[in-house]
């Protein structure tokens, strides 16, 4: 083509600039961190270590946990419950959402009942699941599954209903049948919504898992918190909470990584 400057946009978003700025920021952040630790230590001493463990105590306990390897059993339990629950819950949620999204009459009939169950705080259902499935992993998996199901279901449902009208029209002109439309346009389009739903559900899956463990379990982070609490082991509570916080923080980049691998095109620029 004559005289055009075509631009092929980079596949990966440009790396954030301002390395210079970050370096100075890191200095300030470390200083703030030290100050916070100092405040924490002071508060613990002032209030008494029965209520607030000192940072030093927590650090010692964490080292002990990691050295003995016992923490990994509990991490594994919580992680297992989350992962299995997410996998099953997402699969069911996506299928149900896509189906109901394209069957408006059935959806209209069922919608109020689904909404009722969706509105119920799932944590309240934990004792019921424990009654049904015991205090082992299964009851927590079911709880996570239910939580994740509703989140991904609603997202898949909306994704299936709100497929861009113009995309559908364009494919109809090409000669696309109803089946073509569903398989080639509606389902993949709903994937974007589904990914958002999965993203949303991960932190809730963690919450569900931990709460279930706090009520009755044999292992897990929630179990650790409850056991420490029952033994008045304040250091234990703080240590377990610290691990929980680190896990929560680590979840976000992990999700982004998986998202990027599985659907490269969603991370690219807008197509409009």
């Amino acid at each position: 083509m004559t005289g055009e400057s075509e631009v092929l946009l980079p596949r990966v978003a440009a790396a954030a600039g301002g390395a210079q700025r970050d370096w100075r920021g890191i200095g300030w952040r470390l200083a703030a961190g030290v100050i916070l630790l100092g405040l924490w230590q002071a508060a613990a001493v002032a209030v008494g270590t029965i209520y607030v463990a000192t940072p030093v105590q927590v650090a010692v306990r964490l080292v002990d946990w990691f050295a003995s390897g016992m923490i990994f059993i509990h991490l594994a339990a919580t992680a297992q419950q989350m992962v299995i629950g997410i996998l099953i819950g997402t699969s069911l949620g996506v299928v149900a959402g896509l189906l109901l999204g394209r069957l408006p009459t059935v959806a209209a009939i069922v919608e109020p009942y689904l909404y009722m169950i969706y509105s119920l705080p799932k944590a309240a259902m934990a004792p019921l699941f424990i009654l049904w499935f015991g205090i082992g992993l299964t009851s927590k998996i079911v709880l996570v599954c239910v939580v994740v199901f509703f989140l991904t279901f609603y997202n898949a449902y909306r994704g299936a209903r709100e497929t861009d009208r113009q995309l559908i029209d364009a494919v109809r002109i090409m000669g696309g049948s109803r089946r073509d439309l569903f398989v080639k346009v509606i389902a993949p389009s709903a994937v974007m919504w589904v990914i958002a739903g999965v993203r949303l559900s991960v932190p809730y899956a963690l919450i569900a898992s931990v709460i279930g463990e706090m009520i009755a379990a044999k292992a897990g982070l929630g179990f650790l918190i409850m056991r420490a609490s029952q033994q008045f082991d304040t250091v234990g509570i703080f240590a377990a909470l610290t691990i929980l916080m680190l896990v929560s923080v680590a979840l976000e980049p992990l999700i982004t990584l998986v998202e990027r691998r599985s659907a490269v095109w969603t991370t690219l620029g807008s197509t409009r």
Partner: peptide, 18 residues
């Protein structure tokens, strides 16, 4: 119904992004 004997190009982007 949709006229499948024509090609149709509109202002908006109807490419499938995936």
């Amino acid at each position: 119904g949709a006229n499948t004997r024509v090609g149709y190009v509109t202002q908006s982007d109807t490419l499938l992004p995936w």
